[in-house]
């Protein structure tokens, strides 16, 4: 990984709008946690809300906002040339960008969701939430990093993907659910607390392997794309 490119991507990702989105969604996570704690069946409500909000909303939306911007913003404002023109292997650029996304999205989303899980008071949920959110962040970050490099309107396309595929199509049947990222981290939460959740019916091994594979596939595609793309 190239530390100089890593720093460039980190700085290009940070914007007031993105930080506000991060703060707003963090606030919602904490509010949901307090609501779950006060519920009649905190285990059921906490598992559902951590799964539904953490892996379905918080992780994908923040990964989209920052992941698609990591290289996408450089493409959009035509400054990728100042990274691309250097004698740096393309996979190094992709890895640095991926690391930059993970190092911003990961700690914040995982930390907020883990604090939220702690607030619910459901002990079984604590580690599971941290692991499930981390895996969701990894998968979505890789996916949206690639999306940002591939498409000009990546934010819009990503929102469409989350809304239509992840949130709607995945409910149409088991095969659709298998092709949605969110079902895997949700399964980890379901396994941890024993609360049955819709779509969360993946094997333990798949729950860990698939998000990692999706994130890696995004990274590999980004490297491949960087070596073939034409720079404006």
């Amino acid at each position: 990984m190239n530390p100089h490119i890593y720093r460039v991507v980190i700085r290009s990702q940070i914007s007031t709008g993105r930080l506000l989105a991060l703060a707003g969604l963090s606030g919602v996570a904490i509010l949901l946690a307090f609501a779950a704690r006060a519920a009649d069946d905190p285990v059921e409500v906490a598992t559902q809300s951590m799964g539904t909000f953490g892996t379905n909303v918080f992780a994908p939306f923040i990964a989209l906002a920052l992941g698609s911007a990591a290289l996408g913003d450089l493409v959009e404002d035509r400054t990728l040339v100042y990274v691309w023109l250097r004698p740096v292997p393309r996979h190094t650029v992709a890895t640095a960008a991926f690391a930059a996304v993970l190092s911003v999205v990961g700690p914040i989303v995982v930390a907020v969701m883990t604090v939220a899980a702690a607030i619910t008071g459901v002990e079984d949920l604590l580690v599971a939430t941290a692991v499930a959110t981390a895996l969701a962040v990894f998968a979505y970050s890789g996916l949206f990093l690639a999306l940002g490099l591939r498409f000009k309107r990546s934010l819009l396309i990503g929102l469409g993907y989350i809304a239509i595929w992840e949130l709607l199509m995945s409910r149409l049947g088991d095969w659709f659910a298998r092709l949605s990222v969110r079902s895997y981290p949700m399964s980890i939460l379901s396994d941890a607390t024993g609360v049955s959740m819709r779509l969360a019916d993946r094997s333990t091994l798949a729950s860990y392997i698939v998000p990692l594979a999706v994130g890696m596939a995004g990274l590999l595609y980004t490297s491949w794309r960087l070596s073939r793309t034409e720079i404006d």
């Binding site: 460039v8 700085r11 290009s12 404002d77 035509r78 400054t79 040339v81 100042y82 023109l85 404006d232």
Partner: peptide
Amino acid sequence: MAPQQESLL
């Protein structure tokens, strides 16, 4: 190379 576009980091 100095590209034509004005955009910089």
